[in-house]
Design a protein around this nucleic acid. Structure first.
Length: 592
RNA sequence: GGUUCCGUAGCUCAAUGGAUAGAGCAACUGCCUUCUAAGCAGUAGGUUGAUGGUUCGAUCCCAUCCGGAAUCACCA
């Protein structure tokens, strides 16, 4: 409809003022809900052309538009509010109310969009920060699919390096052969436990050294256990068989643990890269850059790029011993992926602490190496998750563990449901419901915040299940499903004959208009990479339905036509709630 | 110190440069002889960090200042 209005507006301006203008999207918007009308045209931008007072111009344009579009208009303070006939809204309803795919756009014929997220280290379990990353990544990939894009989800597991060696060493020294089975710990938690033990031992040794009169900085470098870990890394790189096999064993434990967490969160990947397989990549690109003169070698043999002309510093690309750094690897993996998939875009879901890194990465690829795919990289930078107590610090034990958190949410859901006296479920149904509610609440709590922004995670609030939460929306859905079951019993099941002529009551009109927005909302969420757009819309829709539900008893309605009409809308809303929540990875219950 | 991001109700968050800045939580007042009260209706709560500028119009764009965060490693 917006496009129709837009075209009409363009014609009107041409006829009235003989000017060709391009219609900016912002000139046409939905009418505020406290004002009569469906769409609003802002006329201020045309005043210069019209050379008239706002009201005079608005009336003139409104008159012209209403005759073109067969709609009513009303001018208030320089805004033209257009109202379309009920029949047009009924047509929209009748065309779409049974469409299970409503809101999802048809498949575009384009190169895929590659999206990397999660990217964990293998020395400790996932925490709250990873949860935000994973939820954002998976949700955005679903949103892009709903926008008609083809997506490829990839994970880049950081399975090598000094951190995993620390866990390995501590396990060797203090583990007594402990395994996930013997300790009854999830593999990632077990490995994480030894990472902590390493750190404790390391600190102990530093303290001793300091007591012997060595400076703290020096002690930090010379603690024997650290030297041992470094030695272990060296041996890993040489391919030492014992080290490699220990490394494989412990990583395997971690993967089994991650798998459980991913499954619980509803995360999956089309492809997983391991850093142990990619960390040597990129050197070739650096050589290439050296040849082109884009990079330079210092006397000690290390390779650098000078980004002064971009307002940045010099950046190291190869160490003096010729080994690669993070940037080298990222240059390599970007190149690898581009060759592999020729994607339209490569999206990296990575925290905003790495903004600088990605700026540099893009500049090196596009400006220095003249690789076109440098411009295809998009760093989807999200804000940190903070706790009421401040920042999460793994060494201080203030991290919120992902597995524990999910479990607590489910427990809270159980407690809440039972307190409300909702016990009309089989055990199996009940457990399934608690999971749905607990995990839904968690996902929604995190996804409803604009990704760019830092967010505060208050455990008590996140467990709250009232107000702007997933359970509120789930509850709304369950209410509708209950309505529809009742309709079924009364012989009013789905292939209803839909009314084609009807005066639409105010509240129903509002609902239809909200439903009408859904495809645009998805598109908007896709272009801004923001699940929060979907979440906020879901809440608005659920709230509007609940108001309607509370004030409008459907089955007491004597007019069969109206009754059916309201059931249609309810059914339609249930579809939109389901399709929208699916994009957030949240399931909805039939009963709750 | 350089660069970047962020400051909106007591708290958590909304608001493609548009009309009277909105929700939820917390507080207070009502509504279950019931299509599910995890709900609905209402009250109260704001100099959108500050000051200038651009504009018909600024929470949004620009400048300066104040406050907070991130980053500036031969870490990842």
């Amino acid at each position: 409809m917006e496009t129709i209005i837009s075209t009409a507006l363009q014609e009107s301006i041409k006829e009235l003022y003989n000017e060709d203008i391009s219609i900016d999207k912002s000139y046409i918007q939905r009418t505020r809900k406290d004002i009569e009308g469906d769409f609003t045209v802002v006329i201020f931008p045309f005043l210069k052309i019209a050379k008239k007072s706002p009201d005079a111009a608005a009336t003139e344009i409104g008159e012209s538009l209403s005759s073109k579009l067969a709609c009513h208009y009303q001018v208030i303070k320089g805004f033209i509010n257009l109202s379309f006939a009920d029949i047009q809204w009924l047509q929209f309803l009748n065309k779409n109310w049974k469409n299970d795919q409503f809101g999802y756009w048809p498949q575009k014929n384009r190169a895929p969009i590659l999206i990397e997220y999660s990217s964990p280290n293998t020395n400790k379990p996932l925490h709250l920060g990873h949860i935000r990353n994973n939820l954002l990544g998976s949700s955005i990939s679903r949103i892009l699919k709903a926008c008609g894009e083809q997506t490829i989800c990839v994970n880049l597991v950081n399975d090598r390096g000094i951190h995993i060696c620390k866990s390995m060493l501590a396990w060797q020294k203090f583990g007594n052969g402990e395994t996930p089975e013997t300790s009854n710990l999830k593999g990632d938690h077990l490995v994480g436990k030894y990472y902590v033990i390493f750190d404790q031992e390391y600190k102990k040794q530093i303290k001793i050294l300091v007591e012997q009169g060595i400076s703290e900085k020096e002690a930090g470098k010379k603690a024997p256990i650290l030297l041992e870990a470094q030695e272990m890394l060296r041996r890993w790189e040489e391919g030492d068989r014992d080290i490699i096999s220990l490394w494989k064993k412990m990583n395997e434990w971690v993967y089994q643990g991650f798998e459980i967490t991913y499954q619980e969160l509803g995360i999956h990947f089309d492809k997983t890269y391991y850093e142990s397989e990619t960390y040597l990549l990129g050197k070739q690109l650096v050589e290439e850059g050296l040849h082109q003169g884009a990079f330079y070698r210092k006397e000690d043999g290390s390779v650098w790029v000078n980004l002064n002309d971009e307002g940045m510093d010099e950046k190291l690309l190869l160490r003096q011993d010729g080994t690669s750094v993070y940037m080298t690897q990222d240059l390599g993996t970007a190149s690898l992926r581009f060759d592999e998939f020729h994607p339209e875009k490569m999206i990296y879901v990575v925290g905003n602490e790495q903004n600088y890194h990605f700026d540099v990465l893009k500049i090196i690829l596009s400006k220095k190496l003249k690789k076109s795919f440098g411009n295809h990289i998009h760093h989807l930078s999200y804000g940190m998750v903070e706790l009421p107590s401040g920042k999460m610090k793994s060494r201080e034990g203030t991290v919120v563990d992902a597995d524990n958190l999910m479990e607590e949410m489910i427990v809270a859901a159980r407690r809440n449901t039972q307190e409300l006296g909702k016990t009309d479920f089989s055990n199996e149904e009940a457990e399934c419901l608690y999971r749905m509610i607990g995990l839904g609440a968690l996902k929604y709590f995190i996804l409803k915040v604009d990704p760019k922004k830092n967010m505060l995670f208050n455990p008590e609030e996140s467990i709250d299940l009232n107000g702007n939460t997933a359970p509120f929306i789930q509850y709304t859905y369950a209410r509708i499903r209950s309505l529809l079951r009742k309709a079924d019993k009364e012989g009013l099941s789905i292939p209803l004959a839909a009314p084609t002529e009807l005066t639409i009551p105010k509240m129903e009109k509002e609902l239809i208009k909200l439903l009408y927005d859904f495809p645009q909302i998805i598109e908007n969420a896709g272009t801004t990479y923001s699940p929060a757009v979907i979440a906020n819309y879901m809440f608005d829709l659920a709230k509007a339905f609940n108001r309607f539900y509370q004030e409008t008893p459907i089955f007491k309605e004597t007019s069969l036509e109206l009754k059916i009409f309201r059931l249609q809308i309810s059914h339609f809303i249930s579809i939109v709630l389901r399709n929208g929540m699916a994009l957030l990875g949240i399931d909805l219950p039939e009963k709750m």
